[in-house]
Design a protein around this nucleic acid. Structure first.
Lengths: 125, 125
DNA sequence: CAAGTATTTAAGCAAATACTTAAATACAAA
DNA sequence: TTTGTATTTAAGTATTTGCTTAAATACTTG
């Protein structure tokens, strides 16, 4: 009816109102989650997270070597991950070791499981 | 030693080689997963997925109304989700209903759980 | 067929991404 | 202190993203 976008007769205004309410309630967690997923949704960063999971900690220098990209590129990805509280740092001499924080493990852990499962499946073929 | 990027004495070449192998093995699943996460890593699209999960199916028109963005914007997001096999369509008259496929539920389901949990926590405060 | 409606596609644009190289820091060790 | 190393930051650029409006499709129905 009084719907600017959609004048479908069958448009269920109650449903639409209900949906808006749900989004309102979940707004903060939706924003937070999408931020984490956006970070993990870059292939290079996902590889970094996967490597940090398996290796416990790595320095930017090693990551650049493993991933085959420049050190500044690695550093900039790591900064984003650190800004998102996904990784933390430990300093040993002049080397800085990055590792995963526990903050978002509930979300990240299934990814690692998924990657390993599928990698194994491909191995078995 | 013979490492262009990193000449740390303590760089463990065995570890680095091992990491490269792991990435090679998991390459395909890393690419596939990062694609899905990139799609879900956009707040608007994450909302869409969340809504489709709770409502079973919705048309572009309703989504535009609920999300407060234009119909073409919705349509373009939906196309990306469809290209990624995350949603599928059902046609009723001239209305097209979008719904989640089961293909990536293993990955997506935890997100919905996470969103609901956190939304509930905020409610209780 | 003609008119209307739901959706998609096209075109254009501003903002965000992700990389590169070069310069700047920070620190360790000779 | 000087030199060298690990890292970060800055600057520049090409690409991608996500939106908008306008036009095109597809389909229904009078």
């Amino acid at each position: 009816m009084n719907n600017k976008n959609c004048s479908r007769i069958f448009a269920d205004q109650g449903q639409i109102r209900n949906c808006k309410n749900k989004l309102g309630t979940a707004q903060k967690s939706l924003t937070a989650l999408s931020n984490i997923l956006a970070l993990a949704g870059n292939e290079v960063r996902l590889k970094m997270l996967y490597l940090l999971e398996t290796e416990k900690e790595l320095c930017p220098c090693d990551l650049a070597d493993i991933l085959g990209i420049s050190i500044p590129a690695v550093s900039q990805h790591l900064r984003k991950l650190k800004d998102g509280s996904i990784v933390e740092t430990r300093k040993v001499g002049q080397t800085i070791f990055y590792s995963l924080t526990q903050d978002n493990m509930e979300i990240l852990q299934p990814f690692f499981k998924h990657i390993n499962q599928h990698a194994n499946e491909l191995e078995k073929v």
